[in-house]
Amino acid sequence: MTTVLVADDDSDIRELVAFKLGQAGYDVLAVGDGAAALETARAQEPDLAILDLMMPGLSGLDVCSQLRRDEATAALPVIMLTAKAQEQDVATGFATGADDYVVKPFSPRELVSRVQAVLARTAS
């Protein structure tokens, strides 16, 4: 079964994403901050990570770049989820190695199709 890691400090968003992805048939690991995200990504080896950009401790970008630096997690597909919508932030997100970028407020349905698309793209 495909496992998705969700890291967001807003419990509403976490619950919402977990619920929607659970419905779509994914296993979901939900955490509330960057450090926990990194730890979970290393320990549980999920198939995809959805990271909030602004989290306490390590930001989504920090987590992403640390994942990329580590051989074991370098290939983990990452979707950034964030309220920051400026071009600069988007560019930074992609430069750091994110595969896709979803702006809050988000559509749960659209998020699922993005998860599916990213997984399909990176599987090949």
Binding site: A74, A85, Q86, T96, Y101, F106, R121
Partner: peptide, 25 residues
């Protein structure tokens, strides 16, 4: 700014362009 993204992905070559941005901000 230029060197880094190339170094960062040792095991995966990116063939596909990044997806369109979601929403209009």
């Amino acid at each position: 700014r230029e060197v880094v993204p190339a170094q960062r992905r040792p095991s995966r070559a990116r063939a596909v362009a990044p997806a369109r941005l979601v929403g209009d901000g």
